[in-house]
Design a protein around this nucleic acid. Sequence first.
RNA 1: GGGUCGGUACCCAAGCGGACAAAGGGAGCAGACUGUAAAUCUGUUGCGCGAGCUACGUAGGUUCGAAUCCUACCCGGCCCA
Length: 430
Amino acid sequence: MTTLSEDLDFRGLIAQESAGLRPVLDTQRVTAYLGIDPTADSLHVGHLIGVVTLRRLQEAGHRPIALAGGGTGLIGDPGGRDLERPLLTREQVEANVAGIRRQLEGLLDFSGSSSNGAGPALLLNNAEWLDSYRLVDFLRDVGKHFTVNQMVAKESVKARFERAEQGISFTEFSYMLLQACDYLHLHDHYGCRLQIGGSDQWGNITMGMEYTRKVRQADTHAFTWPLLTRSDGSKIGKSDRSEVSWLDPRRTSPYSLYQYFVRKGDDEVGQLLRYYTFLAHEEIAALDRATQDHPERRAAQHALASEVCTLVHGGEEAARAEKAAAALYGEEIVSLDESLLLDVFADAPSSVMPKSVLEGKGADLAELLATSGLAKSRGAARTAIAQGGAYVNNRRRSAEDGAVVADDLLYGRYVVLRRGRREYHLLRFE
RNA sequence: GGGUCGGUACCCAAGCGGACAAAGGGAGCAGACUGUAAAUCUGUUGCGCGAGCUACGUAGGUUCGAAUCCUACCCGGCCCA
């Protein structure tokens, strides 16, 4: 039987840790919290690491708290940004917290019915206590315990100091103090003694831990996991928008989520399996070997994609996504039967058009690409066609045969448009 | 409030009266090679089929002509009060 700390070590989830953390993890039952910035009404795969880790803690008998930063979300964490963030309105933050709540309910056990005695998960919103804090009280009670010297020394702040033309507002500078308040509040009201987060949070986390220790003489702890980096050391999915994959199926379909993980590189997939899945250590080791022996089979990537999809959307959706992937990357689209075709494209964007547009010379492919949203504009669509990145029913089309006609219809009704390697759109003609 | 420097496309950044829809880099997109990977190479990235239109913080002005000059305003950095 592996202990929790052994499991976390195996998965590479402990980058930094407070002194004396291990026995707390392995021999006590504690309440642990993870902060989530409600910058959108959905979590994304980045958040998922923390939530899954929280679940590991719960399964090991600890009580998890997911803390939505409804209060701190109004401020914005300076870390990891070189720009001052736009402030969210209260309404936005509340709507975001509500969206996140729904997703967490599928990932953590809020009922407390588990047999291991771990207590139900809680979702709290720090607006509850931060909102009503009075400024003078805050400065007296909290501010007195920190020196600006130590605050300025934090990596997240230093970075902003060095970016001469940007600076950092006092508002964002205060963020870490609010986070420290959270830890104290959770300690006082819920007996919380452990905070977890990504390693970029370490500075903020230690503030809270030390603060709570100082004013309550409490035995508080924390650990962080390393932020994902690629083999060349660069951060994964830093600012490129296309890489953001959401848990909300309306933002990222189950199929897209599946694809997101299937496309992961050999050098990352092992780490991701450890972070995101609950597969046994031997299974992961076997998948590592599979990647080494037959990288082209992408066995580990498929396992990862399937596991995450199941976790987020359930087994049925995961199976569908898997089937769709197999069909699109394996078989000819024209050979799919009608129900499988519809199944495969259930997640893909689709639109309905009158059949009449196919009459005569047919519909202009560039036009279709643009109106379907596969290309940003007709100009972009033409570029795609010229570059050989436009496909009808998975067959490349050039500008010369750029008309879609009735002969292209599958089952008399459908046309599958594709731009580039992976963007699909199903047209249904009526 | 004063002084000063700055605000250019998704990001960084060059341009400082015409040849600028704007160099270069990053990022994105597409293609080739592969394994739905990485690396590499090639092409491409405001809208329009096009004449053209709209764009260099905002609003005006000078000029045959402005991203470039002038004025006011807004926003940011630094220094001073």
